[in-house]
Nucleic acid binder design. Structure first.
Lengths: 350, 350
DNA sequence: CTGTTAGCGCGTTCAA
DNA sequence: TTGAACGCGCTAACAG
């Protein structure tokens, strides 16, 4: 096995010192263009690429970003194969962004609810020494983790978290998205539009609910609190919530669900009761996962890839010494109208 | 920011030399149980975790495994959001296995067809110095990559590759799986069972075809080569192949497709022609992706997670000095009977 | 069985 | 503007 080419070889090839090569590699000032060119040529010729491990040892950067996901949720998602492509989207956004900066992203799974969160996170940090950490829900709102990172002075980003606090918050406007989804239904002619909430554990749940409330209040039909069903993001909770809504004396003709599984539950529950979608019940989902696509559900698109890309970008730039980085970033949400929404059967009046 | 705890601190705490701590950490022999215990206590007390970067610098291992995926295919999959959960399954299998050995898995995307494959792979290797590389299709059969790794003496595993050659081949028995799928249809009473091949670029395509041929030849109805349609894994190719099969004077009543997209194409094509699944055309898919699950397709399950786990395990054990590791590993395939297969409408006879 | 010495490939701090 | 010396945290090779 040929020995790897190191900065030494490049220095020798270019006839300069190690240091000069280092400066060129890192785009530091104080190198004459001529010398710079000579070094670059040597780098190209030898195919030199600096070793991340050595860089981390000598310098202050590891060129590593750590993405922290919830262990149980992630593994369960993989096992069930429900195709929630959250991880894929994170990789696409975060990893590609890292790549373009010479960084790598490493995935770590940690239990949010474990007593050992602290120890687990510390261990991962000690092993990897990442330059920054990207937190996804529910970690992004777990004080045990955000507190630890703050205390350690390690830069981190909170994805889909709107709470104030340390770290870069990167989110989409959940309230506005919920309002948009609601307006979509209203503009189709629906008067009674229901809503199924997510788990109160997640801050986004509140935001979505308030967006729905705002849209309904602003509509001529007004807000009717009885049209709000409580869910917790699980399929079962969706079934229960929608059953309750449809049991109402004056049931909704359309419903906005706080995620895809509950939206699917809505469709199936309606079906079980002899109602069909979209003619009897229009349904909007809040996640554009493969499930939503296959089930042809109109959905709010969470820009997971973009959020991770922004998160990675912020952390990298912060580590590079940039200042005046926004502590709160909003990424535009998307909306995909599909076959699960249509005007109400009788034109909106009963 | 508190300084990280290093091996030095542990050595001081335990009152031994650095080297002794290192030995204990790495489970090396020649340490008295008493001392070992003392060191372990110090490690626990201080919450010490060795730095991967430093280990790589000093020693011969980096505790990193690199998973090499095809760039275009992967990104396209993520973008289309078709929910092909190959990456997820790889992570689940490989990453969790790595984790249990103190390793990490890093994802890298490289263009198979690029002229720069060589350069791209070399760059990734130089930056990361992984202890091993996991190759997925089509990389696992790309001589530009396998050759480079062989030449570099870097251990690697080829997932879903059955070709002879360097590196650990980890695969499922595609031929047997295809035979199983075919037998499933035969045992339901189908006599004319068709087959849609995958792209000949992939070795598994041949294996699947030969399994189909074997099963048909062994059946009382015999093998009919005209029932074999040529596809390339794309939806469009599936449409074309199935259209051709259904145009036959005596068309098949069931078909085994070499992947999920073509299986979906089969169902939709039949539908377009006024045939319904499974009553008029039974369909078996060869991938158990979310798409197959949502479309309720009977499918062969590729044990992607298990294959990556085995691959990671082999590489880690190899690096740890274990010998007599199998150069070819077979992982059992799975089979999920669902709603896309049923007995033929007229009991199998026309 | 244990400790000492010498790097690994870089970035950082200084001096030139 | 450039270069030399030093050390990061760890393991390998050796000495005791």
């Amino acid at each position: 096995m040929r020995r790897a080419v190191t900065i030494k070889h490049v220095a020798a090839e270019a006839g300069v010192s190690l240091q000069t090569v280092s400066r060129v590699i890192n785009n530091e000032p104080n190198v004459r263009p001529v010398v710079q060119e000579r070094v670059r040529a040597a780098v190209a010729k030898l195919g030199y690429v600096p070793s991340l491990a050595a860089r981390r040892m000598g310098g202050s950067r590891s060129y590593l970003l750590m993405a922290l996901n919830d262990r149980d949720r992630t593994i369960e998602g993989w096992k069930s194969g429900e195709g929630t492509d959250w991880v894929d989207q994170m990789l696409m956004g975060g990893m590609l962004k890292c790549e373009s900066h010479g960084y790598r992203m490493i995935f770590e799974l940690v239990d949010t609810h474990s007593d050992h969160v602290d120890r687990a996170v510390r261990a991962a940090l000690a092993a990897l020494h990442p330059d920054g950490v990207i937190l996804t829900p529910p970690h992004s709102e777990n004080p045990a983790i955000t507190g630890l990172l703050s205390q350690l002075g390690l830069p981190f980003a909170r994805i889909a978290s709107i709470a104030e606090g340390d770290g870069f918050a990167v989110s989409m406007d959940d309230a506005e998205a919920a309002a948009h989804a609601t307006d979509h239904l209203l503009s189709l002619g629906h008067r009674r539009v229901g809503f199924v909430t997510g788990s109160p554990q997640y801050a986004v749940s509140d935001a979505r609910l308030s967006g729905y409330r705002a849209a309904m209040s602003a509509s001529p039909h007004g807000l009717d609190e009885t049209l709000i069903g409580r869910g917790d993001f699980s399929y079962e909770s969706g079934v229960a919530a929608v059953d309750a809504l449809l049991d109402l004396p004056s049931p909704p003709t359309a419903v906005v669900c706080s995620n895809d599984r509950m939206a699917l539950a809505a469709i199936r529950t309606a079906q079980r009761r002899g109602l069909s979608t979209p003619s009897d019940l229009s349904v909007v989902s809040f996640d554009n996962t493969p499930l939503a696509r296959f089930a042809d559900m109109t959905a709010v698109i969470q820009p997971v890839a973009e959020m991770s890309a922004v998160a990675a970008d912020l952390l990298i730039r912060f580590k590079a010494g940039e200042t005046d980085l926004p502590s709160q970033s909003r990424v535009a949400f998307g909306f995909a109208p599909r076959g699960s929404t249509a005007p109400p059967r009788s034109g909106g009046s009963r």
